[in-house]
Design a protein around this nucleic acid. Structure first.
Lengths: 340, 340
DNA sequence: TGACGTTGTGAGAACGTTGTCATAACGTTT
DNA sequence: AAACGTTATGACAACGTTCTCACAACGTCA
C-alpha cells in the first residue's frame, strides 16, 4: 500500500494524494473526496519512515533518564508526554542507569536516528562531551541538572530555595545538630543541595561536622541504607538528618526500620524529594515536594520552541518546590527553651 | 555527511563504505581500514532513517502502557529494556491512560512508523480491533492481559494462583467474612482476580455478599478511595478486604487513614500487587508480589523471537507471583477457637 | 588448461515520500 | 481583451541507504 497505489485507485497522481493526506497545497474538494475514499478502501497508512527520510523530521524526541523506576523521572516523563503527545511527537526512551558512557551512547544513537529533539534527565556527562555528540543538530533540554555555558536549556528545581525551607523549618523546631546524606558532587542535585544545606545552616551559625556527612557515590537505595546503618550505630547522633534525594531517604528509612531507630523519637528525618506513597508512612516524612510533572512540561514546551527554531538565548529555568510537613521532625523547642 | 562523502574521501564507492559500516559482504582489510579512517575523520554517522527506509526494519519497538506512573508497568518496562537494549532496539513509549481509543490510536501510529514489534500493556481493547490495527505487519505481545484466540502472545500473572495463596492465608488466619475491591471486568486482571477470589473462597464454603463487593470502573486511586470511604462508613464490615490491584490498595489505605480506620485492628487488608515503598508502611501490607520485571523480560524475549520470524504457535505464559506476608492481616484464630 | 568457487569492488536501481516546477484553466482587474 | 493572480493537477528529481547484479582477479581442483 503506497501513495502510488492510492493514486492509481483514485485516478490521480501520487502528488495529489500526498497533498490530500498532508492537507497542504491546492486540491479540489471533489478530488480530495475521491482520494479519501481510496485511502479508506485500501486502508492506506502513510509510511512514516519514508516521510521522515524525505522531510528530515521524525516527529520523535529522545529522552534519557538515569533510572526509569524513579518517581521523579516518571512524573517528569508524564509531563513531557502531556505536552508533546498532542503535537504529534512520540518519545523514544532510554535508561542510562546513571552511567555516563551509556548516556552519551544513547544520545549518539538518538542523533543517528535523527530525533527532532532530546531531553536529558540524567547522570553527569560533561558539557563538552554533550556538545560534541550533538554538534547542534537537534536541540537539547536538560532536566534536573545544569551545564554551565553550554548551548542547552536547563529546567530544574530551585534547590537552594527548597533546602532553605527545610533548614528554616528545622531550626524553627529547635534543631541544632545536623547530619546530611547526599550524593555525588558531580551531579547537580548532590552539589547544590549539599552546598545549600551548609550555607543556610551557616546563616544560623550552625554547621555540619565532617563525621555527620555521608556523601555517597550514587543516589542509590544501597547508599541510603549504608548511611542509615552508620547512623544507627553512632554513639552520638545528630538530632536531624537531611536526605538530599528521595531514593536515599528510602534506603535510610529502611535501615532505620531494621535497626529499630525510631523516627522522629530517636532521630528526625527530612527529605529532598517525595517518596511514592509517602502519605501512607507513619510518620509521614517532612519533605520537599518537587514539581516533577511541571518540570517535564516546561522542558517539553521549551524543546518544542527550539524545534521550531526559536533563537532565544539559552535559559536556566528554576522550578519552585514546596515544603510538605509530615511527622518526621521532632520538636525540640521545649528542650531548648524556645518559645512555642 | 553521507555515505557518498565518506566514499569520496576514502576513494571507494558508496557500496563499499556501506559494507564496511555494516560489516557484511566482502571487503579487504586494507580498504576497510581506509574507510574507517574516513568515517572517523568526517565523524560520519549513518542516517538511520534512510537505512530503515531502505531496509524496512527500524530497530524500534513500540510499548503502550496504561499508566506510565504505575510501578508495575515501570518494572515491566525495565525488564523489556534489559532484553531489547542489548539487541540494539529502542523503545517508543506511549501512555494510553487506560483509554481504549487512545490505545488503538497509538498502535496505529506505531504501525505507521513501522516499528518492528509492539508490546501492549494496557487497557481493554478488543481482539478484533487489535488484529485490525496490525494486520499482521508487526508482531505483538500482550502484557498483563489476555486476548482469546488472537494471534498474539500473552504474558501475565497466574492470577488464580496468586489469589489462591491469599485466600488460603486469610482462611488459615481464621477469616470468614470477606469484601473485595476490584476493577472493570473487561480488564483481564479485574476479571480473573475477582473470579479467582470467589472461586477459592467457595472451596472453603465462603462467599462474598453483594454489599461487600466494590467493582470499580477503573483501577484508579479515586475508586480505591471511594471504596475505602464506603467501607469506613459501614455499620457492619467484613473482617478482611481483598484489593485486586496495587493502585486500588493505595486509595483504600488512604481513605482508611483519613477516616481513622486502623489496619489490621479494625479491618484486615490484602493486596494483589505490591505498593512502592510498601516496606516502609506500618503495618506492611500482606500482598501478592508480581514478577513485573520478569514479565517484561519474558515478553521482550518472546517478541524478539517473533521479530526473527519464529513460527511457533502463539502462547499464553503465566508468571508465578509470590505471597509476601506483612502485618495487615489480623489473626482471628483465637477468636474462632482455631488451633494456632 | 579450463572450469569453478571465493574474494573484492563498483554501478545503478529501488525504497515511498515530499517538494519544486511546469502547465493549464479560470476569474478578476485594468 | 490583455494581463495577472489563484486554483488545480501532474511529472519528476531528490533524500541516503541497501541490495542485486556484473565484473574481475585470484586460487583450487579435475
Amino acid at each position: 500500500m503506497t501513495l502510488a497505489d492510492v493514486a492509481k485507485r483514485a485516478g490521480v497522481s501520487p502528488s495529489t494524494v500526498s497533498r490530500v493526506v498532508n492537507q497542504n497545497g491546492y486540491v479540489s474538494e471533489e478530488v480530495a473526496e475521491r482520494v479519501r475514499r481510496a485511502v479508506a478502501e485500501l486502508d492506506y497508512r502513510p509510511n512514516v519512515v519514508a516521510r521522515s527520510f524525505r522531510s528530515k523530521t521524525t516527529m520523535t524526541i529522545g529522552v534519557v533518564v538515569s533510572e526509569i523506576t524513579n518517581v521523579y523521572f516518571m512524573e517528569a516523563l508524564r509531563g513531557i508526554e502531556e505536552i508533546l503527545s498532542p503535537e504529534g511527537y512520540l518519545m523514544l526512551i532510554a535508561s542510562s542507569s546513571s552511567v555516563v558512557a551509556k548516556e552519551l551512547q544513547y544520545c549518539m544513537e538518538f542523533d543517528r536516528r535523527r530525533v527532532d529533539g532530546i531531553i536529558l534527565a540524567s547522570a553527569g556527562s560533561l558539557a563538552e562531551d554533550l556538545t560534541n555528540v550533538f554538534r547542534g543538530r537537534s536541540p537539547v533540554v536538560l532536566i534536573d541538572r545544569i551545564v554551565e555555558g553550554a548551548e542547552f536549556d536547563c529546567v530544574l528545581d530551585d534547590n537552594d530555595e527548597g533546602v532553605r525551607m527545610l533548614v528554616d523549618y528545622l531550626v524553627s523546631e529547635g534543631h541544632q545538630d545536623f547530619g546530611i546524606v547526599s550524593g555525588p558532587m558531580r551531579i547537580t542535585a548532590g552539589r547544590e543541595r549539599t552546598a545549600a544545606f551548609e550555607r543556610h545552616l551557616a546563616r544560623y551559625g550552625f554547621s555540619v561536622p565532617p563525621e555527620w556527612k555521608w556523601i555517597g557515590d550514587a543516589f542509590s537505595v544501597e547508599y541510603g541504607q549504608a548511611a542509615g546503618e552508620m547512623i544507627a550505630r553512632l554513639r552520638e547522633r545528630p538530632s536531624t538528618v537531611f536526605c538530599a534525594n528521595n531514593v536515599l531517604t528510602a534506603g535510610l528509612l529502611l535501615a532505620f526500620q531494621r535497626h529499630g531507630v525510631r523516627v522522629p523519637d530517636d532521630i528526625s528525618v527530612v527529605s529532598y524529594g517525595a517518596l511514592e506513597n509517602g502519605e501512607l508512612f507513619s510518620p509521614t516524612i517532612t519533605q520537599i515536594e518537587q514539581p516533577a510533572r511541571q518540570t517535564g512540561r516546561v522542558a517539553a514546551a521549551r524543546l518544542l520552541q527550539r524545534m521550531r527554531h526559536s533563537r532565544d538565548p539559552f535559559e536556566v529555568v528554576r522550578m519552585t518546590p514546596r515544603l510538605s510537613l509530615g511527622g518526621s521532625v521532632r520538636s525540640l523547642k521545649r528542650y531548648h527553651n524556645l518559645p512555642e
